[in-house]
Design a protein around this nucleic acid. Structure first.
Lengths: 153, 153
DNA sequence: TATTGTTATACTCTATAACTATA
DNA sequence: TATAGTTATAGAGTATAACAATA
């Protein structure tokens, strides 16, 4: 009977529920001043975090979705000039998806909105608690993702 | 430039990505030995956490979804005898959704699987880190949910 | 007529399967 | 013929709108 564990899981569930809400995404795009659906935002922010152009398969792997899904959204982002296809330097016959200048700006705005939400929530926290949260969340992420990956094979 | 903040957000995103994956839900239902879709599981676990029968509107509010969505899934769960409608003690003309005995068992299995994933990930952690994670995650959940709720009006 | 829930409908998100291209 | 990606299709998830019921 681990009370800490239950509280952790339950708090995590509440967070996910609040952040996955449709209205939450509306607020995000409103605040960022863009008109993008959720997969679009995920792909742009993923590319921004990666810091370099990535192949379709790598994006799908990173976002844990199937590649046709990525293909469709990348095509639409490409039409809107937010991403473009560039040659893969490691493999001349392949392409990578790169953020355009505008895409970089839009991705930055979207990422910033989420970050600001966390920032707002943590505003009254001590520097020590913020540092501890960061350390433990990062550790949890690493350990839980590894644990789950182990279950998938 | 808050490095802790970025790490917190980014770790959180990874966790959500891994847990929202379609295959993750497959593993959950496999491990629990049930055949339920994601909304079904969410509703059952929500009722179990609540510890008492709840009205449709309250479930929708708790899960942050619209009520027609809850209506549909509750109807299907009712047909499968996992939930049943009982009179609202506070308001004789209204109904509440209650877990049946079997529903309680199924909900418990589902909740336990997720809890065990976290448990597995935290197995090597010190008791102190586990307690700190629980405290900080709970605090984050409260503060961030409140912060977001403030943005929704 | 205000509240709560339901029915009907449509849109968004994501998966699977079948196909294409390229080496 | 393996690999990466695309096209086509279908299913899951959730929202909106219109309606019904009950007080």
């Amino acid at each position: 009977m681990d009370e800490d564990l239950n509280r952790t899981v339950s708090a995590f569930r509440s967070l996910v529920t609040a952040l996955n809400r449709a209205k939450t995404h509306e607020r995000l795009t409103e605040a960022a001043g863009v008109r993008l659906d959720r997969p679009d935002v995920k792909i742009l922010v993923h590319l921004l975090d990666a810091g370099e152009p990535r192949r379709i398969g790598a994006i799908a792997e990173g976002l844990q979705v199937e590649s046709p899904h990525v293909t469709r959204h990348v095509s639409s982002l490409e039409q809107r000039k937010l991403v473009e296809r560039v040659r893969d330097p490691d493999d001349g016959r392949a392409w990578r998806i790169a953020l355009t200048e505008e895409g970089t700006e839009v991705a930055g705005k979207c990422r910033r909105v989420t970050t600001e939400w966390f920032e707002g929530a943590l505003a009254d926290w001590s520097a020590q608690d913020r540092a501890e949260l960061s350390r433990l969340m990062d550790k949890l992420s690493g350990d839980l993702c590894a644990h789950l990956k182990g279950l998938m094979d």
